[in-house]
Amino acid sequence: MENNRFELNAQLAQMLKGGVIMDVINPEQAKIAEEAGAVAVMALERVPADIRADGGVSRMSDPEMIAEIQAAVSIPVMAKARIGHFVEAQILEALKVDYIDESEVLTPADEENHIDKSKFSVPFVCGARNLGEAARRIAEGSAMIRTKGEAGTGDVVEAVRHMRQMKKDIKELCALDPEEVMPFCRDNGVPYNVALQVRELGRLPVVNFAAGGIATPADAALMMQLGCDGVFVGSGIFKSGDPALRARAIVKATAYYKDATKVMEASKGLGEPMVGINCSGMAEDEKLAKRGW
């Protein structure tokens, strides 16, 4: 991948800032999402809540189904590949999706290595729980980062934890003396060149979205106030009582995240939210966020 391509890919992500990316499983949902003001859709066969409920191996979606969604909307279409499954990524690139999410929501195909994303023209987004994970993904060629959170739960607690950790790590790195940077990199698994960029910029060098457990307008505004550049909503919309209404409400709350009156108005009368799973009662080995290395 030429340097120039990486820049264009990171810049596409910049245009998504302040927006909401929604999980959809068919063209009808994709149109509802676009109409509600989504900046992109994530095309997949099952939303994370169903993946979690169904169990078994979860893989890349049928390319035919992704192509139908591409044909249905004019906003960017993203799709998920398994961690380390570079052939799924090749297929998604051949399909010309706008972004590939190398995602812990699917069953990992490689328990040691992620995809070498620098080989691809199509941009990647990857999940991260802390600066080390984010920086390793960026070094591998990821043009966009998102929190992992805990997908399919409707519980925002893990996304908050990951964003707080990211901020803490960045502040710590920025406050170090130059000679302390290398040990920090060693201890936190941060590639040195990415660490230098983070120190210069005071943030990640690519756009950083919130993902994993966001279910309400208030959740979205919370993640934005914590410093995220935009929001992914997975199961939270189409597993709720009135998806179109909730989708619009989350778009409004994300755009006006600092305006409590507008977030309050957006939160009114939305009907049933998705039925959640409390993350604190969850066994460690049930957590999808543990996937990724």
């Binding site: 245009m15 998504l16 800032k17 302040g18 927006g19 676009e34 109409e35 509600a36 003001g37 989504a38 900046v39 992109a40 004019s74 906003i75 960017p76 619009r248 778009v251 409004k252 755009a255 006006y256 507008k262």
Partner: peptide, 15 residues
């Protein structure tokens, strides 16, 4: 600015 035109127009109208 650049962004998604469907999102921008939606917000311009709603608010």
């Amino acid at each position: 600015p650049g962004g998604e035109s469907t999102c921008l127009i939606r917000l311009l109208n709603i608010f």
